[in-house]
Amino acid sequence: MKKFFLTLAALLTFASPAFADHNGKTHGALDTITVGVDGMVCDFCARSLEKSFYQLENVEGVIIDLDKKTMALEIDQGTQLTDEKIKELVYYSGYKVRDIKR
């Protein structure tokens, strides 16, 4: 019986439009910003981008694509992440922004 309720609770949690992430933070829909990053040729080194952007509270996903040399940032819908902040963090991670698409 206990297992049933736990399963039901899990289903209801993930079926709802808002859910809690691994930090226990509840959030809903996400916006995606695609950032072209110059110099991103090494997986080992590109870890710095994840480290830098996950420090921001409204960033829920950092998806690196080495083929396209892009980084997709998933941020909480309705929150802001300015081009200037993106450029600053990319520079701090050791790279250069090529373009930003929203």
Binding site: D38, G39, V41, C42, G94, K96, R98
Partner: peptide
């Protein structure tokens, strides 16, 4: 100095 290019660094 670092040189960041689209396909190289």
């Amino acid at each position: 100095k670092r040189w960041n290019n689209t396909g190289s660094q």
